[in-house]
């Protein structure tokens, strides 16, 4: 009887080991570095993180909302685990926003490497597409692994609008960023107390489509609920308000700079900005 049990057990174990090996091998069986393959658990991450966010009660009391803004993880893999460890120590945090350039070469595997670390965050993270994420076959890879290039979500009365501003990757065709779409999202203010826009390339940068800049900045200026406009790309932290009392443009740190921004929003326009080193 014992023998039968052990032979049953060993068969199960062998079969288990075999199936695990086959599954691991299938994952390694790469058809091209430009292929968009990813296991089901590493696809549609935007949608999954949004679902996790929707399930999560707002961790701060009242109308306060706290989140981290970091950017440009591109090929700085050594700097990601300390970032995640530091963020995981923050209290009252609702989410992490990543300002694009998750990858350097636009390869699916790079995006998956970054997710391997970011999935250890205690809170959901949401990304916007960067110009490097559009290199090679990145346009397809990003959409497969993360999701749409333009999207919005609302959390704690705050509407987040994430917009693709990498105009140069589209050879300045006049359609990136998609201003009519942005206007529509900014105008949809049902149950929205305040708005945050996140993009990769800032509108005053040479990689932003100059033909679209006036319409883009005008759309932002005409949105009274907009608290901040967040961008990455420059590896340079600054806060600018070109027109006093209007849009606040914040450029964040890159992951390599070993700093990130901790934003706390409350009321209609109040915010606190802290720089955290790790």
């Amino acid at each position: 009887m014992t023998n039968v049990f052990f032979s049953w057990l060993s068969t199960r174990l062998l079969l288990g080991a075999f199936l695990t090996t086959v599954a691991a091998s299938c994952d390694l069986l790469e058809f091209s570095p430009n292929d968009t393959h990813a296991p089901a658990s590493e696809r549609d991450l935007t949608q999954k993180n949004l679902a996790a966010l929707a399930r999560q009660p707002v961790p701060t009391r009242g109308d306060t909302l706290r989140f981290v803004f970091t950017s440009d993880s591109q090929r700085y893999y050594d700097d990601v685990p300390p970032l995640v460890a530091s963020i995981n120590q923050q209290r009252g945090l609702a989410m992490v926003l990543v300002g694009g350039d998750i990858s350097d070469f636009g390869l699916a595997r790079e995006m998956r490497w970054v997710n391997d670390e970011f999935r250890k965050l205690k809170v959901p993270y949401l990304t916007v597409v960067g110009n490097h994420d559009l290199a090679q076959n990145g346009r397809e890879a990003y959409q497969k692994i993360f999701g749409p290039l333009n999207y919005t979500f609302t959390y704690a009365g705050t509407r987040f609008i994430l917009v693709n501003t990498n105009g140069r990757e589209y050879e300045f065709n006049g359609h990136v960023p998609d201003v009519p779409w942005l206007q529509q999202q900014l105008a949809d203010t049902a149950d929205v107390r305040r708005q945050v826009v996140m993009a990769h390339v800032p509108p005053d940068d040479g990689d932003f489509d100059a033909a679209v800049t006036p319409a883009y900045t005008r759309a932002l200026e005409q949105a009274p609920r907009l608290v901040v406009h967040l961008t990455g790309h420059n590896d340079k932290f600054y806060v600018r308000q070109p027109v006093p009392g209007r849009v606040t443009y914040i450029s964040g740190y890159s992951i390599e700079q070993r700093n990130y921004l901790l934003l706390t929003l409350w009321g209609r326009h109040q915010y606190k900005l802290e720089t955290i080193s790790y």
Partner: peptide, 18 residues
């Protein structure tokens, strides 16, 4: 070139293709 400057953040196994 992703691995070489990131030998803590990435492991050799993550680079492999079969």
């Amino acid at each position: 070139v992703s691995y070489l400057p990131n030998r803590q953040g990435l492991s050799l196994g993550q680079l492999l293709t079969l």
